[in-house]
Design a protein around this nucleic acid. Sequence first.
DNA 1: GATGAAAGCTTGTCCTA
DNA 2: TAGGACAAGCTTTCATC
Lengths: 153, 153
Amino acid sequence: MPKLDDTDRRIIRALQQNARMSNLELAAKVGLSPSPCLRRVRLLEEAGVIERYVAIVNGEKAGVGLVVLARVQFTTQSTDTTLQFLETIRRYPEVTECFLTTGECDAVLKIVTADLHEYWRFQANRLTSIETVKEVKTDVVMEVGKQSFELPI
Amino acid sequence: MPKLDDTDRRIIRALQQNARMSNLELAAKVGLSPSPCLRRVRLLEEAGVIERYVAIVNGEKAGVGLVVLARVQFTTQSTDTTLQFLETIRRYPEVTECFLTTGECDAVLKIVTADLHEYWRFQANRLTSIETVKEVKTDVVMEVGKQSFELPI
DNA sequence: GATGAAAGCTTGTCCTA
DNA sequence: TAGGACAAGCTTTCATC
């Protein structure tokens, strides 16, 4: 992928705000005619700059209103156990984000469930049963203060 | 909004995976003909179950490859200062997520920047300059292990 | 990067169960 | 109350400049 120019960035910004915008509207917004605009979108997709298009669903209205942040400490920091940990949590739909971090914890997970009871079952049956998990510190989210899907580009 | 039935959930799941799926394809996937399918999608949108459609962009390829998790402690837990904090960080595009939590920290922020130098400037000039921010503990993300946009519904 | 034309999609109306 | 058929008016997309 060659470097992104200003038009590319405008395309990206627009699609981060509304992925269902028609190509006609997008082209008008970024100051191109429809076909070069679509060509750029396809190139951005092929280059992996635009990874996918998703619908954002309201967790509460869909019945999964609880968010918990779990900070996990591993027994060892070996690559193998870490990869195995990732492989396992990728299969758990409740885990919507996972970050491997420097610092006192090894991983931070964002976990979405219906309620505390369901979270508790997840933690007890799934999370702490992973071999490499030594300690889990949970922070229950009282309020989602911001949730943005626009990267600062 | 009346309760979601199984067809609604299938629609939601499909659009969480690919928001640009045509209505024709979606209808086939959930076993409806196009017009009732579109009607359901519109109802889900109007009810706020589907909030929006967004393009997911690869941060590294777009030049913002650093993710930092910042755990913030406030000087006071009063509603006013908390709301003011939220209002402020909502204006910062680097902050892509913010959660108010129970526990030892008051807020956890996900912050996206180009590199550590830029993060440092953000923390020094923006974050710690907010009145209510008492202490910031940063966890630098070495690897994004999972990033899912499908809620477990 | 623009134009224009063919193919296909969206979406409204009306009909049926 | 919910799904299906159909058709007008769009959009997408490709060849060509």
